[in-house]
Structure formats: structure tokens, C-alpha cells
Amino acid sequence: MCLSVPAKIMKIEDEDHAIVDYGDGTSRRINISLVDVRDGDYVLVHAGFAIQVMDKEEVKATLEAFKEMVEGLNVSFKG
């Protein structure tokens, strides 16, 4: 139920709708009323609605932070 898939905003059609690309060649019209987005943003799509904007830079940063944590450096992940 809570399955959500990342997708890229290709074209904003109106205030509430945009066409997204799932990165595997499929595209779909989704509702964007829950987020503030621009063309080119990445969003998480759940049941036809974008529920959050994703931070692409954070992906790399996340792995780096994980490595530092596991290797014993004191990085805080609180909230």
C-alpha cells in the first residue's frame, strides 16, 4: 500500500498535474498537489500522487555518512 516509486518530473501540465518518467521508459500523468515541484525535480510517487521531492545529492551523501558511521566516526543522524 505504501509502495512509492521515484520518478522525474518531465512536464508540468497544470497546477495539480504533471507527466513523470519512471526512468525505465514508462511515463505517467500524476497529481502534484501535495508538493511544490519544477520540471526536472525527482519525486516519490504513491498511488498516483507525488508525496515528496527527493534529494538526488543526498543519495551519495547518505552512503558516505553510513561509511563514516560504521567505521566509527561520530556522525549524528538524529532527526
Binding site: L44, M54, D55, K56, V59, A61, T62, F77, K78, G79
Partner: peptide
């Protein structure tokens, strides 16, 4: 405490 591992989306 509450920690957030899923920072790329949360």
C-alpha cells in the same frame, strides 16, 4: 531516540 536513516526522502 528517533533517528532518520532515510534522509534522501524524509
Amino acid at each position: 531516540i528517533v533517528e532518520n536513516e532515510y534522509t534522501r526522502a524524509v
